[in-house]
Design a protein around this nucleic acid. Sequence first.
DNA 1: CATGAATGAGGTTTCATTCAT
DNA 2: TATGAATGAAACCTCATTCAT
Lengths: 227, 227, 227, 227
Amino acid sequence: MQSNPLPPGDDAPVTPRAGDTPRGRVPRAEREQQMLDAAVLVFSRRGFHHANMDEIAELSGVSKPMVYAYLGTKEELFIACLRRESARLVSGLTSAADPTLPPDRQLWQGFKGFFEFVGAHRDGWSVLYRQARTQQPFSVVVAAMRETVVEVITDRLDAALRLEGRQVKPDDLTAMALTLVGASESLADWLADHPDEDPGRTATRLMNAVWLGADQLMHGVTWRPPS
Amino acid sequence: MQSNPLPPGDDAPVTPRAGDTPRGRVPRAEREQQMLDAAVLVFSRRGFHHANMDEIAELSGVSKPMVYAYLGTKEELFIACLRRESARLVSGLTSAADPTLPPDRQLWQGFKGFFEFVGAHRDGWSVLYRQARTQQPFSVVVAAMRETVVEVITDRLDAALRLEGRQVKPDDLTAMALTLVGASESLADWLADHPDEDPGRTATRLMNAVWLGADQLMHGVTWRPPS
Amino acid sequence: MQSNPLPPGDDAPVTPRAGDTPRGRVPRAEREQQMLDAAVLVFSRRGFHHANMDEIAELSGVSKPMVYAYLGTKEELFIACLRRESARLVSGLTSAADPTLPPDRQLWQGFKGFFEFVGAHRDGWSVLYRQARTQQPFSVVVAAMRETVVEVITDRLDAALRLEGRQVKPDDLTAMALTLVGASESLADWLADHPDEDPGRTATRLMNAVWLGADQLMHGVTWRPPS
Amino acid sequence: MQSNPLPPGDDAPVTPRAGDTPRGRVPRAEREQQMLDAAVLVFSRRGFHHANMDEIAELSGVSKPMVYAYLGTKEELFIACLRRESARLVSGLTSAADPTLPPDRQLWQGFKGFFEFVGAHRDGWSVLYRQARTQQPFSVVVAAMRETVVEVITDRLDAALRLEGRQVKPDDLTAMALTLVGASESLADWLADHPDEDPGRTATRLMNAVWLGADQLMHGVTWRPPS
DNA sequence: CATGAATGAGGTTTCATTCAT
DNA sequence: TATGAATGAAACCTCATTCAT
C-alpha cells in the first residue's frame, strides 16, 4: 500500500533537471544552493549510504574538493540539506494557518500547507525526512523540527480551546498533537508515493479521520477502555 | 520528541544477553534462530549499514561463513529478520482481537496487542521495521506486511458496520484503516523510545485520538472542507 | 570463429545426466568413477577456479569429506581427471592407427581417432585439456601426454620413411610432428565448439592442410626463405 | 615439450624492470600505461586468478583505488590488457606483409612479423592470449582478434589466387586460414617458451610445414580419404 | 578559486578444507 | 563408512577524504 519510489532504477545515473549544471564563476551562495540541490536529489534517489560524493559533485557542476570546502563532510552536507528542507517545511506550515480562524479550519489549512509542501518537494520529504527519522545522527535534527511543529500545533489547539473557554490536560493535548503529526507523516509518505494525489484531498481525508474525534475530545467526550 | 535509541553508545560492543553465545555443535534450526536473534539485535543497535557481519557472527557464537551458509547475504539476512518479526507481529495482532466483540473493543484489543508486541520486541520493531520502511529493497517486504494488516483492519471494520446495518464507501474505509495504521506506527515509534510507557495506556491514547472520530464517521457524520 | 561454449549459462546448476547420483553403498572404485565424472563435468562447465567442491560433491551423490577422502584436494582431483582423460585419449589415439598401413592412412586414422575422441568427450577435452595447457601446475601433466603423442607420431613417421628407404633429419621430423599436433589441437578446439561437425570431415580437412606438404617434405622438397 | 614459464617461482614477487615504479604525480594517460604494463606482467606471471590487484597496484607505483578508478574491475583491467596487446599484434602483423609480393613471401613475412611480435612481447602473448583463449568472458575478445587475422589471411590468399587466375572454394580457403592460424598459435606457444629460438627460423619451419601443401592445394591438388 | 591525482581503511563475500559425530 | 557443522584466510571492491598543482 505504501511502496518506495526510486523511480529511475537504482543504477540509473541521476540526470540533472533543466537549467542545471551551469559552469564558470558563480558566487558562493549560489554555488551552495546548487550543491544542496544536487545533494538532495542524489540523497533522495540513492539513500544516504548509497549516495556517493562523486555523483553529488558532478551533478553540482564542480569538483569534489569544492563540495568539501563549501559544505563540509558528507554528514554535514546531509544535515545542511535537512536543515534547508526543514526550514522550508516549517515556514510553509506555520504561514499556512491563520490564527484568527476557527480551529478546524486552522488545522485543515495547516494540513493542506503541509501536504502541498510535500507534494512539491517530494525529494526533500520522501527521503531526507524519511531517512533522517531513522538514522543516526540525523534523527536529532528531525526531532528538533518535529518538536517545533508539535509545539505550534499544541499552541494553536490550546489557543482555540481557551477561546471557547475550555481547557484540556496538557498530556492529552500532546497526545493529540502526536497523533496528528504521526498520521500526517504517514499520509505524507503515502502522498509522496502517489504523484497523482491532490494535497487538498489528502488533507480532507486526514481531517475526516481525526478531526471529528478531536472535536469531541475537545468538548470533553472521551473513550474509556473496558474495565 | 522522538529520538533514536542506540542506548549503548554507538561503539559499545553489543553484549549477548544471559544464556546466549552457546558454543559447539548445534543443529541447524537452532543455530539459525540464534543467528536471527543476533542479527535483529545488531541491526537494531547499529542500523543496517553500520551493522557488520563480523559482529553478528560473533554474537551468534559462530564464524561468518556459517552465517552466509545458513542465511545468505547481509541483505538476505536482514530480510529473514524482517520476515520473522513480521510474522510474529501479524500473528500477535490478528489473534488479539476477538471478532465477536463490538468494533471499538476489537480495535482496542488489536491496538493493545500491537503495542504489547512492540513493547516486548522493541528491537524487532524499532529498527527493523523503521529502517525497512525507508530502505530499498526491504520496503517491499514491509509493504506486504502492512497490506495484510490494513486488510485485516478493513475487514473487521466492514464486518462491524454490516452488523449495524450500515455501510461505508470502500475508499473511506481504506483511508480510515490507513490512518489507523499510520497513527499506530507513529505511536509505536514513540513507545519503542519510551521503555516506561505501558502498552495499554498507549492503546487507550490512540483510541481516544481516533475512535471517537471513527465512530462518528461510521455513523455518517463527516467533516467537509470550507468552500 | 572460435568461441567458448559453457552452453548452460554460467550460473545454471550443472544437472546430472540420466543414471547419475545413485545413492547408498557403492564400492569404492565405482564411487571414484562417479566422482571423476562429476568433477569433469563441473570443471568443464565452470573452469578450475570457478568450480567449487560443494557442487562436485553434490553431483557425485556424496558429501564433501568423501571426495577429499577418496581423491584428495581440489588440485589432486583435477589432476586425477586429467590423467583419466589423457589415458583415454592416448589409448584411443594409438589404437586407432594400424602400423601396417601406408603413412597417409595411418595419419588419417590417427587424426580421425583423435577427433572422434574429442567429439565424444567434449567436456574432457574442451576444458580439462584447454585449461590444463595454460594453468600451472597442470601443464606438466599435459606436457607429458603431449610428449607421448609427439613421440608416437615421430616414430610412425620415421618408420614409414624407412620403409620407403628415406630419412629425414630428426629436427625436421620433430618440427613436423609439432605442427601436426598443434594444428590438431587447434582444430580440436574448433570441433569442441561445433557440435554438428563430423570428426571424419575435420580429419580430412587437416589432412588436406598438412599432408600434401608433409608428403613433399618427406620426399625432399623444401621451401626456403628468400635471402 | 611445452611447459609453462612462471620463471620466478610462483611466489617470487614480480620485480619491476629498470626504470619502473616512478612515484609522485603522473598524468593519467601515462599512469594508465604503467598500470597496463604492470598488469600484463603480473597476469602473465601468475595467471588471471592467481594475480592479485595489490601486486598490480604496487607494481604500478600507485595504490589499488587508482587502478580501479582508471581501469575498472580486475576483469576490465584484464580486457584492457588484452585489447592493447591485441591491437599491437594485429597492427604488427598486417603491416608486416607487403601485398605486392608473391603469396609465399607475403605469408612468410606475415609469420615472421607475428613471431617477432610474440618473441618481443612474450608476456603479452604467452599468457594473456593463452589464458584469454580458454577463459570466459575473455574468449570473445580473443575471438574478435582471431577473426580479424583470419580475414586478413583469407583476403591475401584470395587476392594472390586471383592474380594467378585461380579460384578456390571459400570453405577450403577458410579451412586453410584456420589451420595456418592454429599452427601459428601452437608454434607461438612453443616460441614463447623457448627464449633462444629465432622468430625467423620458426617462421621458416612453419612455412615448410604448411606452405608446400597449401601451394599444391591452391593449384588444385587434394588429398582424399580412402573409401 | 579550482581540480586531477591519490590513498587508508574497511566491508562483504567465497572457498578449500577439517572436526566430531 | 559417511556427514553436517564449522572455520581461517584471503580477495575484490568502494568511498570519504586530502594533497599538490
